[in-house]
Write a protein that binds this DNA or RNA. Structure first.
Length: 136
DNA sequence: GCCAACGTTGGC
DNA sequence: GCCAACGTTGGC
């Protein structure tokens, strides 16, 4: 099992949108590195959902409900892929980017190192650490 | 609103 | 194939 974090602009499509639909397509990713990670996703993998822009915090827990398949929004058939995500639960305490930067255990996260990457893996310990500080 | 990082495009 | 110009993302 692998652990993931996906970023989204809440004004465009946020955690609430995914929660409202329960399960939805995660499409429109147009970055090769992100695409390659999406191809590694397997049904059941946990996924943290991060809001970029104004809020800058991890807000929810989802899981992969369908592994990679051709992105229907890829009109030119260029090989982009989508996955399906299912909302699991909102984090009771969202984990802010500022908090992540303060935690020694989270310094190696791709979120801090590659600010523009929209789909990234997490280690199991990073994932568990985030969930731990998201409860209280 | 600004700017750094970084990906893409296009001229050569 | 290189690299300058340009566009986009996203934090501050």
């Amino acid at each position: 099992m692998k652990y993931w974090l996906v970023k989204t602009e809440p004004e465009t499509y946020g955690w609430r949108d995914l929660e409202a639909k329960e399960e939805d397509i995660w499409d429109g990713v147009r970055n090769y590195q992100a695409r390659n990670y999406m191809k590694e996703m397997e049904a059941g993998d946990p996924v943290l959902v991060y809001h970029s822009g104004k809020s800058r915090e991890i807000v929810g827990l989802a899981k992969v409900s369908a592994s990679a398949y051709p992105d229907p929004s890829d009109k030119e058939n260029k090989g982009w892929v989508s996955v399906n995500l299912s909302a699991q639960k909102p984090l009771s305490v969202p984990v802010a980017l500022a908090r992540i930067k303060e935690e020694d255990a989270l310094q190696e996260m791709a979120l801090l190192k590659q600010s523009r990457l929209s789909v990234m893996p997490l280690t199991q310990s990073e994932f568990e650490y985030i969930l731990k500080i998201a409860v209280r």
